[in-house]
Design a protein around this nucleic acid. Structure first.
Length: 429
RNA sequence: GCGGGUGUAGCUCAGUUGGUUAGAGCGUCAGGUUGUGAUCCUGAAAGUCGCGGGUUCGAGUCCCGUCACUCGCCCCA
């Protein structure tokens, strides 16, 4: 059967990275890695395949349907990880006794989820995970947020491009309790609040959630909470959540991040396992999906069987950020960084070309050596298209003269390089 | 799971009320130019018109089905 176009495409939702796409991916990965290192995080990695049990335990049954699960030849139930946090929790728990807490770890993890594809969402993606485990103090949230902001800064994004929205789960709980809404109705109300940007009137959702009219009125009042001061007025000064958020904003101002961070009562995030401060970053126009999200999850390690350990973490995917960087032309600087290509006219010049390539490589340059003879026109045309900074074309005349010329593609300037001496490579640029 | 849009060359797309040999631009390759790229000129290769069926003298075009891609909804990293 001859291959059809269908068979040549990657499976649905899976991604190939051709060289030009790889450049952009590396641009993002580099920013993540540099920010992680700059903030003192250690890199780790783990297997892509986990036991289904580990993944189920954390996410509950709903998420299981989105997991790429399979049985191996011994019948073990395994799965491609849909996220990194259970793996992190497993690794921490496995060596809990020997780790010096707090632990600051980062990874760029390939994750899989079987779900309907839409803009900004694929079945496979890479996610930067940044976690501080074993630190109950607010410093953990502050450093994680600052590192994320630093990474975005390295990608060229500023406070006019992105906004990090912060909330506190306890704050919402306190506000709802203050409004007389019993705790068992909170999850439904969270769901409804999460839709505030998508629907005009929340009343039908809240009614469905079992709230009576006065409770609905209370929720609608909550929606008018636009600032932390508004919340503080409702809750009073003794609110721990208000205090924590104020403290967070105060501390982030020391990092010069005030213009990028704002309070937003509608940030809910993973209803089940976040326990404290939660945050999400969006483009300022708020047209796309969340760029990253995270928060404090103090119970997760206990849930997988580890000792009680506090944690703050974030997940920052590569798909949404790539869309944003593309839209803002911030990938423009991405180009292959190859310095020189060396070509030759006939096989008689091949040895001289090898000599030139070796000398330049020894001098630390990235050098492409032609794999076969080329006519000058072919060679320079290729050198131009592939974006080499310099090109050296060696023919019989050069070998006879004992030197060759390195041509700077941008301006046509040439510099001479000796052929036989092979010791001196005139300093570049 | 639900709904919309789109499938024609490697890419982006045109293709008239159904009509004879399916086009353009870009890209690729070659030549003009056997020692010098970008511009220019000439030429070439490249198509199961997503797939299957139907209507018709005749289907890229109309109908039915199907698959794929894509954008929303739901949900979520």
């Amino acid at each position: 059967m001859s291959p059809s176009k269908q068979n040549l495409a990657a499976p649905r939702g899976m991604r190939d990275f051709y060289p030009d796409e790889m450049l952009r991916r590396s641009f993002v990965f580099d920013a993540w890695t540099r920010a992680s290192r700059r903030f003192g995080f250690e890199q780790y990695d783990a297997c892509v395949v986990e036991t289904l049990e580990l993944l189920k335990r954390k996410g509950g049954e709903e998420i299981v349907q989105q997991i790429y699960a399979f049985a191996d030849k011994s019948g073990r139930e395994l799965a491609l990880r849909p996220e990194m946090t259970p793996t992190l929790a497993r690794m921490i728990a496995a060596r809990h006794g020997e780790l010096a807490f707090p632990v600051k770890w980062f990874t760029i993890a390939q994750c899989f989820r079987y779900e309907r594809m839409t803009k900004g969402r694929r079945r496979e993606h890479y996610q930067w995970n940044l976690d501080i485990v074993g630190e109950p103090a607010l410093t953990a949230e502050v450093e994680v947020l600052a590192a994320a902001a630093d990474a975005m800064g390295m990608m060229g994004l500023t406070a006019s491009d992105v906004r990090i929205r912060v909330n506190h789960r306890a704050l919402l709980g306190e506000l709802l309790a203050r409004s007389g809404i019993p705790a068992d109705q909170h999850p439904s109300v969270f769901l409804a609040l999460d839709k505030r940007d998508k629907v005009d009137d929340l009343t039908p959702f809240l009614t469905q959630a079992g709230l009576d009219q006065s409770a609905i009125a209370s929720v609608n009042r909550l929606l008018e909470v636009e600032s932390l001061d508004d919340a503080a007025q409702l809750l009073g000064e003794d609110s721990a959540a208000v205090h924590a958020l104020n403290e967070l904003f105060e501390r982030l101002s020391r990092y010069d991040l005030s213009s990028m961070i704002q309070f937003d009562i509608s940030v809910i995030r993973g209803l089940g396992y976040y326990t404290g401060i939660v945050f999400e970053a969006y483009d300022t126009a708020r047209t796309g999906r969340a760029i990253f999200g995270g928060g404090r999850y103090d119970n997760l390690l206990t849930e997988i069987g580890g000792k009680p350990t506090t944690a703050v973490g974030l997940g920052f995917g590569d798909v949404v950020i790539a869309d944003l960087l593309e839209e803002k032309n911030l990938f423009d600087g991405c180009s292959p960084s190859r310095d020189v290509t060396v070509g030759y006219m006939t096989d008689s010049e091949r040895d001289a070309a090898v000599e030139v390539a070796c000398a330049l490589r020894k001098a630390g340059q990235s050098v492409d050596l032609a794999t076969h003879t080329e006519k000058p026109k072919q060679f320079f045309s290729r050198a131009d298209k592939k974006g080499f900074r310099e090109a050296a074309y060696i023919g019989p005349d050069d070998v006879a003269a004992g030197s060759c010329r390195l041509k700077t593609m941008a301006d046509g300037e040439e510099r001479v390089m000796p052929l036989i001496g092979k010791s001196e490579v005139s300093s570049q640029k």
